[in-house]
Design a protein around this nucleic acid. Structure first.
Length: 244
DNA sequence: CTGGGGAGGGGGCCC
DNA sequence: CGGGCCCCCTCCCCA
């Protein structure tokens, strides 16, 4: 399931919410180490042009055979928080069968949830909403089935979180915090295999793939594995698959 | 050209 | 309902 499944396109009867209530005031994260540093002139997020928005690209690689991570990649003691149980985390995008506690099933799409609140949220966000509501973004053509999803999306246009060092703006506070690490040099995520450290958990995860002989992304023709989907895509574009 | 690191984006889940 | 955190993903750059 695509990650952007909440996005509805080509729907004409879009409901326009009150945007003045949706946009958040700017957020500044100011570590104490910034005190005394000159602050750049920060453009008001509201003047950002919608043209600056880059729409998502649709990945067309189909049927990626994702093999599970080798067991030797399991984190060791001292590893950053929940990276260890990432594979077991229940994501709505996962289609893996569940063997227990799926007592609440959506009557529209048959998706099952272990809790009633989970089912309720699913119906509010997806199934029921798809038949009733559509919230469209005033900055771009995207439409969402819930107001919350639209609010989150609008932040990608208004960029209310501004770095006080360089003035760069972000849609969410944690994105700004990750950016601030590029200024401070903080790298809280360490590789248990080579002691290399990273400022971003995702980058550590990608790095962990480099320690594995059998990597996560595999070419379905030559069985060669790659640490990243982008590398697999490059490999496929280079002609491996068309040669078969 | 390939592989890997850095940086960032977006949607989902949990509390 | 919103914030925080999560994961997955992409793009760019460099060795």
């Amino acid at each position: 399931m695509p990650r952007s499944f909440l996005v509805k396109k080509h729907i004409n009867s879009a409901k326009k919410p009150n945007y003045s209530e949706l946009e958040s005031p700017p957020v500044f994260i100011t570590p104490h180490i910034y005190k005394g540093l000159p602050l750049p002139l920060i453009p008001h997020p509201e003047i950002l042009s919608p043209a600056a928005y880059s729409p998502i690209t649709v990945w067309t690689t189909s049927n990626l055979p994702l093999s599970p991570l080798p067991s030797d990649l399991s984190p060791v003691s001292g590893y950053p928080s929940s990276l260890s149980d990432a594979s077991s985390k229940d994501h709505s995008g996962s289609e893996s069968p569940r063997t227990e506690a799926e007592k609440f099933q959506c009557s529209l799409c048959s998706k099952s949830y272990s809790t009633y609140s989970g089912l309720l949220k699913h119906k509010q966000l997806h199934c029921d909403a798809q038949t009733r509501k559509s919230f469209s973004c005033k900055y771009c053509e995207k439409e969402y089935v819930s107001l919350g999803a639209l609010k989150m999306h609008i932040r990608t246009h208004t960029l209310p979180c501004v770095c006080k060092i360089c003035g760069k703006a972000f849609s969410r506070p944690w994105l700004l915090q990750g950016h601030i690490r590029t200024h401070t040099g903080e790298k809280p995520f360490s590789c248990p295999h080579c002691n290399r450290a990273f400022a971003d958990r995702s980058n550590l995860r990608a790095h962990l793939q480099t320690h594995s002989d059998v990597k996560k992304y595999q070419c379905k023709n030559c069985s060669k594995t790659f640490s990243r989907m982008s590398l697999l895509h490059k490999h496929e574009e280079s002609g491996c698959c068309v040669a078969h």
